[in-house]
């Protein structure tokens, strides 16, 4: 097991393994040291940042659905200045790729934030064009290929940091959105953010979330996410970070086979703060059992010739 090569490369950066903590499910990483060594992670995408601090949506913000979770946090965060002053440096001490996830109400806001991050001790910027829980920006931008193209292009002009564009699955054809991001100059795309959904309490006849609707994540969406990653990988050249309900090492393998270069783990972090250790161990066990020494062999390795029969 010691001879396994787990490292992957994206946008000129080396990740020690393909496991990244998904934005919004792992805070700013700090505070998790009691549960896991942050140095074992391929990367951490921090809690979604906005130009000004945001209080987020009123509670309840979470509902459990069969094999899934609905959330409507609404981008609660202390603002980008707080991140730069207080969080970025302490996080830098860990040997893992640090990704700043940014969210704007306008194209200018995204650009302004990217500029602020230009000289910050981070490795990548993730443009979140997909938050389903805010009134402005977010998903409204991510559903229109023209807007995705123009914002990506504008942000690229304001930063030399490698850029990830995070896509929403709430579209008719995600491949077109992915292409638009690529044409706009994205270095990497990550997909999928959550699916819009809702939960109702029949007893009280009320929605469970205060926001009425929220974003669905977890194993419930894994088949949808896998399909989208596979579709997008057929069309775009840039690397893909795949996500959607990854709970085990085998789930990681499935996303890599579908064409992802790395994966993000989200909902599993809400189930157990140690989840990414177990997922990484699961990936290693799969590779050992299947005599795969380099994880890159799995990327895009889906076998489709001859149908699904062995």
């Amino acid at each position: 097991m010691e001879n396994l090569n787990l490292g992957v490369n994206m946008a000129g950066l080396s990740f020690k393994n393909p496991i990244i903590a998904a934005s919004g499910t792992f805070g700013f990483g700090l505070g998790y040291e009691d549960y896991l060594d942050l140095n074992i992670l391929g990367g951490i995408s921090v809690k979604g940042l906005t130009l000004e601090a945001r209080k987020g949506n009123p509670p309840p913000r979470i509902a459990e659905t069969p094999s899934g979770i609905l959330n409507s946090v609404g981008l609660e965060n202390p603002g980008i200045e707080y991140f730069l002053d207080r969080t970025a440096l302490p996080l830098r001490q860990f040997d893992t790729v640090i990704i700043a996830n940014i969210n704007g109400n306008t194209s200018d806001e995204y650009c302004h934030m990217a500029e602020k991050l230009q000289d910050a001790p981070i490795d990548m910027v993730e443009l979140n064009l997909s938050c389903p829980n805010v009134k402005e920006g977010g998903i409204a931008f991510g559903t229109d290929p023209k807007t995705v193209y123009s914002i990506t292009k504008a942000v690229k002009r304001h930063t030399s940091q490698p850029l990830i564009v995070k896509l929403t699955p709430n579209v008719t054809d995600i491949s077109q959105i992915a292409l638009a991001a690529q044409q706009g100059g994205a270095d990497v795309i990550s997909l999928v953010n959550t699916f819009l959904g809702m939960a109702i309490d029949a007893r009280t006849r009320r929605p469970i979330l205060n926001n009425i609707t929220g974003g669905l994540s977890g194993p419930a969406i894994k088949p949808l996410a896998l399909r989208m990653v596979w579709q997008v990988s057929q069309l775009v050249e840039i690397p893909i970070i795949g996500m959607g309900g990854i709970m085990t090492g085998e789930d990681v393998v499935e996303f890599l086979l579908a064409g992802a270069t790395a994966v993000s783990v989200g909902t599993a972090n809400l189930v157990s703060p140690t989840a990414m250790i177990d997922i990484l161990d699961g990936l290693k066990n799969y590779m050992t059992a299947n005599k795969i020494t380099n994880v890159n062999e799995l990327i895009g390795g889906l076998i489709t010739e001859g149908g699904n029969k062995l």
Binding site: T25, P60, R61, V73, N269, L270, V271
Partner: peptide, 11 residues
């Protein structure tokens, strides 16, 4: 959600 301060849902 997580119970450890990471997901900010239990506000």
């Amino acid at each position: 959600g997580c119970g450890v301060g990471g997901c900010v849902v239990c506000s």
